[in-house]
Structures are given as structure tokens and as C-alpha cells.
């Protein structure tokens, strides 16, 4: 696996948000939406990011694109740091990284025609003549499976799935290498979900795209991803190759998540206890391992020290003391 080239590398990325205090005497508090995340994304792969709502997965995506200013940490795109960039230099990188958004109803400007929506990025970033742009809009529409006459229509004339296709066409307009898809199918009907997923996979093959696919739906992530990272409360608790992770989850949280997928086979034995309780407040996360408050296998050390991602077999990484070698059990 090490022979693949790294497209995007994130090192110790943090995105904290200050919380408004009710009075001056109150302590300053921050929400740690993304808390010390390091991960690599290889060229041509799809990295799935799963987690409950509030786990910081959308914030992670937006921070990578610098739609949210990172508090600290590094973002390396093709080896170049981009976390400090702004203005034109930042735009150069953004041209290679685009985003497909979650809500197909708010991600398209209701006052613009579909043709204008797809044309706009080219107008700003590519040196193309008006005719060339028009041709390209038609090509893109065809690519995402829409008819040419969609150009003249307004977004509200389309269904959710069609709108998501338009969003994909817009993201592709300036030939990006990397696309962050922020829950692109979670607002769609199940029957439409698979169409959009398959479209994204076809486009990936055709255009050699790299995806970061954010979702709370484990089934969807399994379908599209090569590798999967599991997030909990702003941290990655486990990351690994799709099959290894789904067949042999290591982290207790991953186990609980996978056990929560409903199955049709009633004979199958389910030995994992479902999770109890809610996600703790990200304003006041548990000390040590963030999961210890809900973990069925919590040990004393879990509430003291923070586990780091360590490599296990099959290139699987997990942040859990159960898999860490050493003398922590005595402490």
C-alpha cells in the first residue's frame, strides 16, 4: 500500500470554535469540532469518513478546503502546505479541490439557471471562450446524466437527485483532482442514492478523481469507499481498508456502529452490546479517551491518557488502549 502516492496529507489538524460566554466570570470555552486529526489520502482512492452527527466530520471537510480557518495543524496538498494561504494562491489549490454538498436544495442558487451555475466556475477560473464554456456545460450535463435543455431551467424544476447531479457537474467544471463529498446522498431517497453513488464511482474511474466521502451511513460508505475512517467527537478512532475494517473492527466504537446496522438474518448472533447514552458535549469532552464514557471495555487508563492511532495488522490503525502494547495496565 505504501507504493501509492499521497495526494492530501493532514497533520494534527485542529478546528476549535469559541463559545459565547454568558458572563465575563465564566471560563472561556471552545468547541473542539476537529481535534488533532492526522490522515493521508492517496491519489485515486475514496476515503470514507463516518461518524455520528456532531462528530466533526463535516467540519473536517470544510476545514480542509479552508472554508473554516484551522486553529492549528498542517494541510499538505501534493506535498505543499496550504493552511496559511489566502487569496489567489489559495484559489489555485481550491481549483483542484471542490466540494459536493449535502443539501441539494440549498446548494444551488435558486435565482440562477443551471447553465449559469455550471458555467460560473469556468468563467472565473478557466480561460475559455463563451462558446467553449457552453460546449463544456453541455458535456458535463451529459456526463452526469442530464439532458442538454436543463441549462435553461432553474434548480427548483429538478428533483433532489437531479439537483445533486447538477452539484456534481458544477464541482467537476474546473477539472479538480480531489472532491470532498459532504453527505451527498443523505438527503436523497434510497433508490436515488445508489444512482448518484454509481455516477460518482463512474466519474471517479473516468476522470481519475480522489474522493473524501463524508457520511453517517455505514452502508453507503462501504459501497463507495476504499478506506474508511471512523470519527468520534472530533477525533479519528479507527482507520483502515474497507474490508478489513468492516470484517474485523477493532475499536469498541466501530464495533458498536457496525453492530447497529440492521440485518435481515435473525439467526446471526450479535454479541456486541448497543451503545448507551448520547454523544458527550464537544464543549466539554471527556478527559483521556473521548469514548470512555460510553465504552463497554473502558479501563482506568482510558480516563487518564489519550490513546493515539497505532498501526495494527492489515494497515489498520486504531486509537485504543486495548491494542496498545506496554505497561499501561499497571498504571
Amino acid at each position: 500500500m505504501s507504493n501509492r502516492t499521497v495526494l492530501l496529507e493532514i497533520r494534527n489538524l485542529k478546528a476549535y470554535f469559541p463559545v459565547k460566554r454568558k458572563s465575563i466570570r465564566e471560563d472561556k470555552k471552545v468547541v473542539k469540532a476537529v481535534d488533532d486529526i492526522s490522515i493521508e489520502i492517496y491519489k485515486g482512492e475514496t476515503l470514507g469518513i463516518v461518524g455520528e452527527s456532531g462528530s466533526g466530520k463535516s467540519t473536517l471537510g470544510r476545514t480542509i478546503l479552508k472554508l473554516i480557518e484551522p486553529t492549528s495543524g498542517e494541510i499538505l496538498f501534493k506535498g505543499e502546505p496550504i493552511q496559511k494561504l489566502s487569496g489567489k494562491a489559495l484559489q489555485k489549490f481550491r481549483n483542484q479541490m471542490q466540494m459536493v454538498f449535502q443539501d441539494p436544495f440549498s446548494s444551488l442558487n435558486p435565482r440562477m439557471r443551471v447553465g449559469e451555475i455550471i458555467e460560473e466556475p469556468m468563467k472565473l477560473q478557466l480561460a475559455l471562450s463563451k462558446e467553449e464554456r457552453q460546449t463544456r456545460v453541455k458535456e458535463l450535463l451529459e456526463k452526469v446524466g442530464l439532458r442538454e435543455d436543463a441549462m435553461k431551467k432553474f434548480p427548483h424544476e429538478f428533483s433532489g437527485g437531479q439537483r445533486q447531479r447538477i452539484g456534481i457537474a458544477r464541482a467537476l467544471a474546473i477539472n479538480p483532482a480531489f472532491i470532498i463529498a459532504d453527505e451527498p446522498v443523505s438527503a436523497l431517497d434510497v433508490s436515488v442514492q445508489s444512482q448518484v453513488l454509481n455516477l460518482m464511482m463512474d466519474l471517479q474511474d473516468e476522470l481519475e478523481l480522489t474522493y473524501m466521502f463524508i457520511s453517517h451511513d455505514l452502508g453507503v460508505v462501504k459501497h463507495i469507499s476504499d478506506r474508511v475512517a471512523v470519527m468520534y467527537l472530533g477525533r479519528i478512532v479507527e482507520v483502515g481498508e474497507k474490508h478489513a475494517l468492516y470484517e474485523n473492527p477493532l475499536h469498541p466504537y466501530t464495533k458498536a456502529l457496525l453492530a447497529a446496522i440492521p440485518v435481515v438474518d435473525f439467526q446471526e448472533k450479535r454479541d456486541v452490546e448497543p451503545l448507551h447514552g448520547d454523544l458527550p458535549s464537544p464543549m466539554d469532552p471527556p478527559v483521556g479517551c473521548v469514548f470512555h464514557t460510553r465504552c463497554p471495555k473502558a479501563m482506568p487508563i482510558c480516563s487518564e491518557k489519550r490513546p493515539v492511532l497505532t498501526k495494527q495488522k492489515n494497515d489498520q490503525h486504531v486509537a485504543c488502549f486495548l491494542y496498545e502494547e506496554g505497561d499501561f495496565s499497571v498504571s
Partner: peptide, 13 residues
């Protein structure tokens, strides 16, 4: 803060 504005920012409007 709507997503189409985020998208506009991304494409450099």
C-alpha cells in the same frame, strides 16, 4: 451560510 454561497466561495467568486 447556505451551501450555494460556500460553493461560490470555493470557485473563487
Amino acid at each position: 451560510d447556505s451551501e450555494y454561497i460556500l460553493s461560490a466561495k470555493l470557485i473563487g467568486v
